[in-house]
Simulated assay, not measured.
Amino acid sequence: MTRRTTRRALLGTAALALLLTGCGIRPTQVPVDGGPAPSRLPCAVNGEGGPQAQPSSLPVRIYLVCASQLVAVDRTADTEAPPKSPPGTGLPVARALVAELQKEPTQAEREAGFQTYVRSPLTISVGRAGDPDGTYRLSRQPEALAPEALAQLVCTLAESRAAADEGGVRLGGPGGYAPALYDCAPTTKSHPQTPLPTRATPPPGPPATP
């Protein structure tokens, strides 16, 4: 390439830069910011890695928090450890699920981004006299729990054999407050930090005549 050709090329490059600047276009090599990057948490547990199933164990599904959402996790729970419950109730399953929610996530679950907001000690029992059928009483008021913890409890119990006949789960606390029927709505899973939707609990019916 001759010296004259090189000079023409440099002049052409400078003219192009001036043209772009005059049109309001500033040449840059910095990539445009397209907003925050999506979460890199996999929110999925790969491999076995869990405890070996025992004769008294039961496959269960619980909800943990990952990337600010509720995500289902499959585990194996022991249903013989809780004390015996009244026949015809889902109390053994409910107790096993509550116990699983209070356990710290396994190493594989932590690496996948899972965490739990349900803190021990927390126990669950059947409703007291006068409560509607299918009521469970927690050892703490549901409203006193962290919103994420209550969302984990409600969605886990509502999608198990401990669910109420009309769907959702009916929960109360240790005090004299009436239980509420909580629903696991899609917004509960996507935004567990928001208040949970409830349905009105019907008043107890008149006592049966002998």
Results as ranks from 00 to 15, higher is better:
P82L: 01
T89I: 02
L122Q: 07
T135F: 06
G35N: 03
V73H: 01
A163W: 08
R26F: 13
A158T: 08
A200L: 15
S56T: 13
L122P: 08
G127T: 02
R75C: 00
G175T: 05
L18M: 11
R95C: 05
F114P: 00
R7Y: 12
P204I: 11
G12K: 04
L196M: 04
G175M: 02
R75N: 04
P210C: 12
A9S: 08
R140L: 13
E159L: 11
Y182K: 03
A14F: 13
Q102M: 12
T187P: 01
S39G: 06
L97G: 00
L64K: 10
E80V: 12
D33Q: 13
P207K: 12
T194R: 14
V71K: 15
L20Y: 10
Q152D: 02
P27Y: 01
Q29P: 01
L41S: 09
A99N: 07
T89N: 05
A14T: 11
V60S: 05
T6S: 13
L150P: 01
A15H: 07
A53E: 08
A96S: 08
G12H: 08
E48L: 11
R161D: 15
A208M: 09
G22W: 13
P86N: 05
L196T: 02
A112K: 00
E111T: 04
Q141A: 15
P51N: 09
V65M: 11
P36C: 00
C184T: 07
P105N: 07
E143D: 15
A9Q: 12
C43Y: 06
S120I: 00
L97C: 00
T156G: 09
L58F: 15
D183C: 08
C23M: 14
D74V: 06
Q69E: 15
T209S: 13
A185R: 13
P27M: 03
A146E: 15
L138Q: 05
V60R: 03
A144Y: 00
G205R: 15
G168S: 03
